[in-house]
Computed example of a mutant assay.
Amino acid sequence: MSDKLSDDEAAGAPVKPTLKTIAELSGLAVPTVSRALNDAPDIGVRTKKLVREIADRIGYVPNRAGLRLRTGRTQVISLVISTEHEIMNHTARMISSIAGGLRGSQFHLNVTPYFPDEDPMKPVRYIVANRLADAVILNQTQPEDPRVAYLLEQGFPFATHGRTVWCDRHAYFDFDNEAYGRLAAERLIARGRRHITLLAPPLDQAYAQHMIAGATAAAEEVGAQLTVIEEASTNSPHEQIIDVITAHVRANRDTDGIVSSSASGAMAAVAALEAEGLRLGEDMDVCGKESLPILTLFRPQMIAIEEKVWEAGDFLARAAMQAILHPAKPPLQGLDIPTR
Rank of each mutant, 00 (worst) to 15 (best):
I241D: 00
P123H: 09
N38F: 13
R187L: 15
F156N: 11
I337D: 06
E220V: 04
E274Q: 13
D145R: 03
A215N: 01
V111F: 06
P41S: 09
T197G: 07
Y126E: 15
T47K: 01
L5T: 12
P327Q: 07
A190S: 08
S233E: 00
G100R: 09
L151C: 13
G214Q: 00
H90C: 08
P330W: 02
A190Y: 07
Q142P: 01
A224S: 12
R70D: 14
D168S: 03
P41W: 09
L335A: 07
S260V: 14
R250G: 11
P116Y: 06
D174V: 12
V51A: 04
C287V: 15
C167H: 06
D176T: 13
G12S: 07
T216V: 07
V33F: 05
A11V: 09
R57M: 08
L332Q: 09
S6M: 05
L67R: 15
D8V: 12
D256V: 06
A312P: 03
V15F: 04
R131H: 14
G192Q: 02
T18D: 03
A40K: 08
E307W: 00
L203N: 00
E86W: 11
Q142A: 07
E307N: 10
L28I: 11
E282D: 01
T74Q: 00
A266F: 08
M267N: 05
A10K: 15
E24D: 13
K49W: 07
G59S: 12
K122H: 12
I242C: 02
R93Y: 13
L198K: 02
V228G: 00
G181A: 10
F158H: 02
A323M: 14
I77L: 06
I305F: 07
A179W: 03
M321Q: 06
E276M: 10
D134C: 12
V80H: 05
G265A: 11
L273N: 01
A36C: 02
Q322D: 03
T216L: 06
A55G: 11
E282A: 09
L50Q: 09
L273A: 09
A328T: 14
P330E: 00
A11W: 05
D283F: 06
L37S: 07
P143G: 03
E274W: 04
S233V: 01
A92S: 15
